[in-house]
Design a protein around this nucleic acid. Structure first.
Lengths: 236, 236
DNA sequence: TAGTGGTCTAGACCACAAG
DNA sequence: TTGTGGTCTAGACCACTAT
């Protein structure tokens, strides 16, 4: 692990351990430089990482402060990998409805940037949170990247498998969503009345080298769908 | 403007001018160093900024590539300032339903971190996109930050006023949302049937020094609500 | 092996905030 | 005025990709 990543992790851990709250001040740069025995740039890099993650904010001339939102049970749309951390204390399980190798839809082929003739993995799951339906998920995986999947893998965290077992590095993702009414089939799976509100999401995941490997379409149970985003204003 | 910001802006402009697409390769670092006559760190800083904005991705040992999503008409949830840029070609207008100074609700006071006795600006608007209802927006502004508002300002972009006229620096925001059914009052304003699906968003905006100054509750017309997010995987 | 991006340093200097 | 974070440099060295 790189120095600045380790330092960032240490500082983050310290925030958790000391249960620091929004607005609490962290030590000054000089203190961190001494503590970790590294140059100013390395500390800055570590803090920039924490800032990107939405954990601190830096104020010139003043100090470094903790950024911590207070609401629990919201799904973070930035931490990519589905749920996990944001929902600690919440139990996520999956029921696998389909797992096979097939031709992608035109839409899937386009989003995965693969030839429509080329087979892909298809996975359809219903996901549950504390026993209640959370969402229906249909995923297409580029087979030349994700070469093998089985029922066991697909019942657990597919992303853990991809990064840990396959050693692939997940880089970034594009996420689109809109709101509408669910159809009869979706209503059945989500155990909701027909034409209930629904959140429809599409997400394309890329490796760090830019290659798309996963195109997913997710329909959320509106009763369980609470999301949050921490945005930074790089935009001016 | 700082060197690295200017360089980032120049590179971004060049991507637009040359109409580069997702995956297109940019010049190598050495070329940029020569072109702008700055050190490697400065170029790296500029490219990191563009990476945070979701405009490029960098691949070690390979190069720097353009990242560009293809779908148009989606509202970016990361570029903070409501709409504007993402919706070029789309006309956004506002109808002001209320503008006054009042005691905040308990909820607004909590989110703005002000005393419940302390008056705040309250603004309620309906926003239209190409003449169709887009959303209902109720906003509370911390009066000790946003000291003055009038009907003219509030009919246009409040954020432009805050940054340009008041000279305040908008830093980051926390955004929460869920999906449900709109009530009768909301249905009227959005010109939708009662109990239509709706997206309910709450957003807290902070200055760069961390002070919250705007708490907004927004109800979106589900027919006009298409959103996108470009996420990076800093999370591992 | 050569090319390319990433990390890290030490230090000079700048810009903003607080007292 | 002092403290604090931010920018920028020049250069050494490292890690990954492509060929």
């Amino acid at each position: 692990m790189l120095k600045y990543q380790q330092i960032a992790a240490d500082i983050e851990q310290e925030i958790v351990d000391k249960d620091l709250q929004q607005g609490d001040k962290l030590p000054v740069l000089d203190a961190f430089m001494a503590q970790f025995d590294v140059s100013k740039s390395t500390i800055t890099k570590a803090l920039d990482l924490l800032e990107k993650k939405g954990i601190v904010y830096q104020v010139r001339g003043s100090g470094i402060f903790v950024r911590r939102h207070k609401r629990r049970g919201y799904i973070s749309l930035l931490s990519n990998q589905g749920f996990k951390k944001e929902l600690d204390g919440f139990q996520i399980t999956s029921e696998v409805l389909a797992l096979d190798i097939r031709r992608p839809t035109a839409e899937a082929a386009r989003n995965l940037a693969v030839n429509p003739e080329e087979s892909v993995y298809y996975v359809k799951r219903v996901r549950y949170i504390n026993g209640q339906t959370l969402c229906i998920e249909e995923s297409y995986y580029n087979k030349s990247v994700v070469s093998y999947l089985n029922n066991e893998i697909v019942s657990e965290s597919i992303f853990n498998y991809i990064s840990d077992a396959l050693g692939l590095n997940i880089g970034f993702s594009d996420l689109y969503f809109n709101v509408g009414k669910i159809n009869k089939k979706e209503a059945e799976l989500l155990r909701l009345p027909d034409a209930s509100p629904g959140l429809f999401m599409e997400q394309i995941f890329h490796l760090t080298n830019g290659q798309p490997f996963d195109f997913s379409k997710i329909t959320y149970n509106y009763e369980q769908s609470q999301f949050f985003i921490q945005a930074n204003n790089y935009f001016l």
